[in-house]
């Protein structure tokens, strides 16, 4: 079987535009499996994107940018964890606040970088984009194996399903949840960094353009399973690549706005189908969004 060149190109473009969403959705998966609903995902991606661009621009190394982006968003996630896991603030409201904070902080930090390009570091990063794409796929496989076959993975699933059981085993629920929020935020930041360093090598205010919300939708669409997230991300990437090509080519069989609705509509459909099944096996962490309070278990 031979693939024609345009098909291969489309698939390649699809994988590249799927990658930031893949990283972000995998990060969100870890966080939600631990029982925390993180609506600050868009803000985290922006923090990652701006940090990566600033560091890559200053140091000339895109790798340094990526690493710093992971560290910065992990710290940003640490603040969120301290607020919702530590102080037990409402996760929905605090998450929205983190999105606002991330968009404000990134706009503030990045204002003198608007319009700059990365030059050599950018083209090197774009040339290495295959590496980041493969890295995202590898992360997904690792996450799937981790959740399914390892003891810490089992503990992570229990963290979102029945934290009281972990507490009864003498395991520290609050620090564990914080750990996964921080780890997941780092992955989300890597997704943002991919946008500003590899995808478009530049910094523009609010450049993630809603990809965080799509990643959030994908986690639900995938029913909290890592490999389904890959499928969803690739599907989204295909839509994105097709839309881009249709815009360039001028003709499309459907208005691109309706194509953009697809991830959200598909997520609503999956939510609807899932709610008809029994809660067991549906994949939703049953205590998603509920702070753990030992005295109320």
């Amino acid at each position: 079987m031979t693939l024609s060149d345009p098909t291969l190109l489309l698939l390649g473009a699809a994988l590249v535009s799927a990658t930031p969403i893949l990283y972000a959705a995998l990060g969100e998966l870890l966080i939600e499996r631990a029982g925390v609903l993180n609506l600050g995902i868009e803000g985290s991606m922006l923090v990652g994107a701006v940090t990566a661009f600033m560091v890559a621009h200053g140091s000339g190394s895109s790798l340094a940018g990526m690493v710093c982006a992971i560290l910065a968003t992990a710290a940003f996630g640490g603040v969120f964890a301290a607020l919702v896991v530590g102080l037990r603030l409402n996760q929905v409201v605090t998450g929205l606040a983190m999105t606002i904070l991330g968009s404000g902080l990134s706009a503030f930090l990045g204002q003198s970088y608007v319009g700059l390009t990365l030059g050599a570091a950018g083209s090197a990063a774009t040339a290495a984009s295959g590496l980041y794409v493969a890295g995202g796929l590898a992360c997904a496989v690792l996450a799937a194996l981790f959740l399914r076959y390892t003891r810490p993975g089992l503990l992570l699933r229990t963290l979102g399903e029945n934290p009281a059981a972990l507490d009864a085993l003498g395991l520290p629920v609050v620090p564990l949840r914080c750990l996964y929020v921080i780890l997941g935020s780092g992955l989300i930041g890597l997704g943002g960094a991919f946008i500003s360093v590899v995808l478009t090598p530049s910094w523009v205010e609010n450049m993630t353009a809603g990809r965080g919300w799509i990643a959030l939708a994908l986690v639900i669409f995938a029913r909290w399973r890592a490999l389904w997230i890959v499928a969803g991300a690739v599907l989204f990437g295909l839509i994105d690549a097709y839309r881009f090509r249709a815009q360039v080519g001028g003709a499309s069989w459907i208005d691109p706005h309706f194509l953009n609705m697809l991830p959200y509509v598909a997520t609503l459909v999956v939510l609807g189908l899932q709610s008809r099944r029994s809660a067991q096996g549906a994949g939703t962490p049953t205590l998603l969004g509920v702070a753990y309070d030992r005295e109320r278990r």
């Binding site: 607020l83 606040a97 606002i100 904070l101 404000g104 503030f108 204002q111």
Partner: peptide, 14 residues
């Protein structure tokens, strides 16, 4: 930078 007001909104809230 108007982003200051955005940052202020979020930090006050939190």
């Amino acid at each position: 930078p108007g982003a200051i007001s955005t940052i202020l909104q979020a930090t006050i809230l939190v």
